[in-house]
């Protein structure tokens, strides 16, 4: 699929408008507070647009589509959990109200008031380690999307993404958060248009009754294949045999529109032939009678905790992660800290919450539709895996003009995420790693120069790490595990520090160290297993590592604080009155 002049015009107008708006905001930057938190001038709907645009990047769309490709709509379970977590936090003000009232620029700055400068520095280091590594795969996956959507030659991937990053750096370095907010608003609109139109097209191509029927059959075929491979004994205790029979998926000589009722009834599917229109049944029937190609499997498409689903442990881990993300993830919290007051921050959360369902469910829909499409085609093309199947599918679906809009939408998603993340991590390095080490505060001009230089340096790191690093497994696993390096420990510090008077710096230090042990042990043990499987037969499931991280961090905080109470009696009962006092001054 190649771009037409109309497509190029749409992309060009978007890029020029966006960069011009971003550069224009430079005139309002007078100091670090304007640069890092937009002078705390952000109102509700600008906050909604900025939060949504920042947290929906191309990488988000790629990994959520991959979850849809492997697990159907059930792959969007995290989207529902994160929306629930965000709404509840927006309703109660849990963590975000005291944090905004403290008047800080970053989360670690809050820790200094409670646990001392050492904990602030250590927390800043952990945030940077988890956050920058997490961001490491953004550029490459953004480029891969373009490669598979518009047929961008692979050799141009690096130079294209470097040029895109240069545009982002231009306005982020000049205008900071003020530029990020205005460009996020424009990117929210372009991205929203692309997502809505693509979702409608996907549902037009694969109507919902066909979609559900095909995914159910695919799951039954997967169960049957696994049963044949491993025998019933490995399916788990107390589980019944699958209702699908392998022979019901095998080839038949009946024509497609006749084969469907026969195949569905023998496979035990709830969908019936009459529920599907003549047109759609003719276009999708071949999948009914085709076995699943190699490398294509479908988990339980609707029930995440049902047979063949993601499992209770996984859902519990994702629920903990969702709560930790909405209260601890610095790029999300940056919008809380840039809000005019805590009431505005809570309203932003409540009004953005449901957007996070679509953030997983809509690209997940595209991914699941891609599964059905490639099943009909007899398998994935060479060089296309579960992560890259969705953009390749969209390339066959989108007509002229809409392809240009989709490219502009994905560039918007990539740019808004990159700019928000670049600024956030640069602010943490400046505010929590460098400034605590400086005895005499430099001038406003020097401080602005430092933070702008840090944005450029992180951009350079991204070019070299992000474009040359090869992803070893599922994108979502990589993102959650690197994110967990800091999510578990900092979530524990925030909850303990804000709501448990006994918490002290010994407990906080123990929580930071133990919280990182789970994700790091996951990375090391699984690396050893992949390296020498005979000597290291065990692997750690990501949900076990993730839940262990939260358990270890909370245990570290509780035990460490109780032990610390013996040595630091004067810190017991210290609360956030200090922080509130700072704000009122």
């Amino acid at each position: 699929m190649t771009l037409t002049p109309l497509d190029w015009a749409i992309i060009g107008v978007y890029l020029i408008g966006c960069v011009a708006a971003g550069v224009w905001m430079k005139r309002y930057v007078r100091g670090v507070e304007d640069f890092a938190v937009a002078g705390r001038e952000m109102d509700v709907y600008l906050g909604v647009a900025s939060l949504a645009a920042t947290e929906v990047g191309v990488v988000t769309i790629m990994y959520t589509a991959e979850m849809g490709f492997t697990n159907g709509p059930a792959g969007a379970t995290y989207g529902v959990l994160s929306a629930l977590a965000m709404f509840l936090v927006g309703l109660t003000g849990f963590v975000i109200t005291p944090m905004r009232n403290a008047g800080v620029m970053t989360i670690p700055e809050l820790f200094e008031k409670r646990f001392g400068v050492g904990v602030r520095w250590l927390a800043g280091l952990v945030i940077i380690l988890g956050g920058v590594l997490n961001m490491g795969i953004f550029l490459r996956l953004g480029g891969e999307f373009l490669v598979h959507l518009i047929g961008l030659p692979q050799q141009y991937l690096e130079v294209t993404m470097t040029a895109l990053l240069a545009l982002v750096l231009l306005y982020t370095v000049l205008g900071g958060m003020l530029s990020v907010l205005v460009t996020d608003y424009l990117q929210f609109l372009v991205m929203g248009m692309g997502i809505v139109i693509t979702s409608v097209l996907v549902l037009w191509h694969t109507p919902w009754p066909v979609f559900t029927q095909q995914l159910t059959l695919a799951h039954q075929a997967t169960s049957a294949a696994q049963e044949q491979e491993t025998g019933l004994g490995s399916l788990g205790s107390g589980e019944s045999a699958p209702s699908a029979k392998p022979q019901s998926i095998s080839a038949t000589t009946a024509p497609p529109h006749q084969a469907q009722p026969q195949a569905t009834s023998s496979a035990g599917s709830a969908a019936t032939g009459t529920a599907v229109s003549q047109k759609s049944s003719e276009t999708t029937d071949p999948a009914v009678v085709k076995p699943l190609p190699k490398g294509m499997k479908m988990g339980n498409p609707f029930n995440p905790v049902g047979r063949g689903g993601l499992g209770w442990m996984w859902v519990l881990w994702q629920a903990m992660t969702a709560l930790a993300v909405v209260t601890t993830w610095q790029t999300t919290i940056a919008r809380v800290l840039a809000a005019r007051d805590s009431k505005t921050a809570k309203r932003i959360y409540r009004r953005t919450a449901f957007y996070f369902v679509g953030r997983f469910a809509l690209p997940g829909l595209w991914g699941a539709a891609a599964f059905i499409y490639f099943w009909q085609q007899g398998g994935l093309p060479e060089g296309v895996d579960t992560l890259r199947a969705m953009p390749r599918f969209l390339a066959t679906l989108l007509p002229m003009g809409l392809l240009g809009l989709m490219v502009a939408a994905m560039l918007a998603a990539e740019m808004s995420t990159d700019s928000g993340y670049l600024l956030t991590w640069a602010t943490v390095i400046y505010n929590d790693l460098l400034m605590p080490l400086v005895r005499r505060k430099p001038s406003e001009k020097t401080r602005l120069l430092i933070i702008r230089s840090l944005v450029v340096l992180i951009g350079l790191f991204l070019v070299f790490y992000g474009l040359w690093y090869q992803l070893p497994g599922k994108a979502w696993d990589y993102l959650v595990v690197t994110g967990n390096i800091y999510l578990a420990s900092l979530f524990t510090l925030l909850v303990g520090g804000l709501y448990w008077p006994t918490a002290n710096r010994i407990g906080a230090t123990a929580a930071i160290i133990l919280g990182a042990v789970g994700p790091l042990s996951f990375l090391i043990v699984n690396f050893l297993h992949d390296w020498k499987p005979d000597q290291f037969p065990w692997k750690i499931a990501p949900e076990i590592a993730g839940l262990a991280a939260f358990g270890c961090a909370f245990a570290g905080m509780i035990v460490g604080s109780l032990v610390g109470r013996l040595f630091l009696p004067n810190t017991v009962g210290q609360d956030w009155s200090l922080a509130r006092k700072d704000e009122s001054q």
Binding site: A49, F188, L189, G192, M193, V196
Partner: peptide, 10 residues
């Protein structure tokens, strides 16, 4: 949200 946030955010 395209229209509502589009108008209010602008």
């Amino acid at each position: 949200l395209l229209f509502y946030v589009g108008f209010k955010g602008g």
